[in-house]
């Protein structure tokens, strides 16, 4: 015979109900977001259909052409480039902090990276627009380009990679490292054969999280990538990513055009949330 214990305190019952309703609200936000994205996307999904979003003659929403493919490609290209740059450098700077730097420098370095992580994307965008783009323009005009987008995104997500990698390396059990040291393995051997494999899932999680951030970032790319809707032929072509497209056109979009922008928002959300969930599974969550 098992009993359910009923607490007689009314205050506690009321408290429990109040807390539950707050939690329902918190969960409700996510459901509301999904609901409204689907609701607003629905007209476009019905009348345009998924296929035309990749097969139309181009992105001319006012003339009824809704090809998102160039922007999808630009989005992936910019994020991929950013990760290819920020991944190795971010992991290397975490390795620097954990294995190479003297303690005082390591601590200062970590603080600097944390500070970098807190800089708003619009500030990165401003700096990219006024410093980076002119430099690229001198070399390969017009300057505002896929490359500028990649570099700024890389700069932005680098702290994410570095901080998650740092946490993952920190979590490697000390006895592994001591064991390897006792065997007289070289520093490089220690890092490549012991530390990085042991921290692998955290490192991959951090990279996925950084990828999600790069794909979902709006302001920084919008400000430096030139915003021309085209499939880039080179790193120096201006491109427009999905997020920037929404930010640029939402102000005046109506009817199917507006709905099509919501479709791209929905797609973006599913993609980014999927990546973030994968990252979370691998333990690459950043706290705070």
């Amino acid at each position: 015979m098992s009993r359910s214990h009923v607490n007689k305190s009314h205050a506690d019952d009321i408290l429990r109900i109040a807390l539950m309703s707050a939690a329902v609200l918190a969960v409700g936000v996510l459901l509301l977001i999904l609901l409204f994205l689907v609701r607003e996307s629905w007209p476009a999904l019905q009348r345009i259909g998924l296929y035309r979003f990749v097969s139309d003659a181009g992105w001319h929403p006012l003339e009824g052409a809704f090809n998102l493919a160039p922007m999808l490609i630009a989005t992936f290209a910019a994020a991929l480039g950013a990760i290819l740059i920020a991944g190795p450098i971010g992991i290397a700077s975490a390795v620097f902090g954990r294995f190479y730097a003297p303690p005082v420098i390591a601590e200062t370095f970590r603080r600097m990276v944390a500070l970098l992580a807190g800089i708003p994307s619009v500030v990165f965008g401003l700096w990219g627009l006024t410093v980076l783009v002119p430099i690229i323009a001198k070399w390969q005009p017009p300057g505002a380009s896929l490359l500028a987008g990649m570099l700024i995104l890389a700069f932005m997500v680098l702290p994410t990679v570095a901080l998650t990698a740092d946490a993952a390396l920190k979590a490697v059990p000390k006895q592994y490292l001591h064991g390897a040291n006792a065997l007289g393995i070289s520093q490089a051997g220690l890092i490549f054969n012991v530390a990085i494999p042991a921290a692998r899932s955290g490192l991959i999680g951090g990279i996925l999280l950084a990828t999600a951030r790069a794909l979902g970032e709006t302001m920084a790319v919008l400000m430096v990538a030139g915003n021309v809707v085209q499939v880039p032929n080179s790193l120096f072509d201006p491109v427009r990513v999905l997020t920037a497209n929404i930010a640029l056109e939402m102000a005046y979009a109506t009817t199917e055009h507006r709905s099509a922008l919501f479709v791209s928002g929905l797609a973006l959300m599913l993609l980014v949330v999927g990546l973030a969930a994968m990252a979370g599974k691998l333990g690459g969550r950043l706290h705070g």
Partner: peptide, 29 residues
Amino acid sequence: RAIGMSIDVLAGVPSIVFGLFGMAFFSAY
């Protein structure tokens, strides 16, 4: 776990999507 998962998902939503949602729900609806 359900609440925790939806909170983590919410944390991953890109800010432009929050903008779209805010516009559709708070501003318009």
